[in-house]
């Protein structure tokens, strides 16, 4: 924990740009109580959550079709492969053209960029399905709905968490990008404005808020849910990094 702080300290003393830590931290409470920062924060959070949900649905659908195979399986496979390779900047600029400056554009960019990764992870999960449990389900003549609910779905839970974790962080990055290029609201836009106006301390503060939200979601939301969903495994098996 000490290293980044150390780096900041060094940075602030060697250049005139980076403001000393104390000053920035002092501005924090004032900054946080400024009412107009919260709508932007909320907006960005909303966008991330919404796009992630879309990405999860699309990703699951894609993984399912890819796993089934056949003509559509291969077609979707190609699309996913293609979309993995689009630089998010280009996707952002493109969506700007298609959706102009609307909210939809942001959701579009973030979902399109993240869903292929979700699909890949879930596909791995589908492929790793335990044939032996499937067979047990067949022997006991489990109807398809029960089979899906008790055997197929729980198997995918760890993979879903992995996908969520990775793509959540990814989604944040893309959303900032999208907000920077495409719309005038949200944290990304505020951050860019701070940069434009050379308000470095503001930029730093936005960065800190960003960090806090990220760490908070990881430790307060993701890890506990994961632990709870996977408690049948015994302890110590959650993702490490």
């Amino acid at each position: 924990m000490s290293v980044p702080i150390l780096l900041w300290w060094i940075g602030s003393h060697t250049t005139t740009f980076v403001p000393p830590m104390g000053e920035v931290l002092r501005k924090m409470p004032e900054f946080l109580s400024e009412e107009d920062i919260w709508p932007d924060v909320l907006l960005t959070v909303q966008r991330v959550a919404g796009s992630l949900m879309i990405a999860l649905s699309l990703g699951f659908g894609a993984a399912y079709v890819m796993h089934k195979g056949g003509l559509w399986g291969r077609v979707v496979d190609r699309y996913v492969g293609l979309m993995l390779g689009i630089p998010s900047t280009i996707a952002a600029l493109l969506s700007l053209y298609i959706f102009k400056r609307s909210e939809l554009g942001v959701y579009f960019v973030v979902s399109i960029v993240t869903f292929p990764f979700v699909a890949l992870t879930l596909l791995q999960g589908l492929r790793a399905a335990d044939r032996r449990l499937d067979e047990m389900g067949d022997v006991y003549r489990l109807p398809t709905s029960q089979h899906a609910r008790h055997i197929s779905a729980p198997h995918l839970v760890p993979y879903t968490f992995a996908a969520i974790r990775n793509e959540y962080a990814h989604a944040w990055k893309v959303v900032v990008l999208a907000e920077l290029f495409a719309v005038n609201s949200g944290m990304g836009a505020r951050f860019a404005r701070a940069f434009d106006r050379f308000r470095i301390d503001d930029a730093m503060l936005w960065l800190i808020i960003f960090m806090i939200i990220l760490l908070a979601t990881e430790y307060l939301l993701l890890l506990p849910s994961e632990r709870r969903a996977l408690r049948w495994r015994g302890s110590g098996k959650e993702a490490l990094l």
Binding site: R141, P143, W232
Partner: peptide
């Protein structure tokens, strides 16, 4: 042989238990 076909119920004990670990 179909799923949900219970005409002849069969009990099967496998070599590895094949219990659902998450239930």
């Amino acid at each position: 042989t179909g799923r949900g076909d219970q005409s002849v119920p069969i009990g099967y004990v496998f070599q590895e238990h094949r219990l659902l670990p998450w239930r």
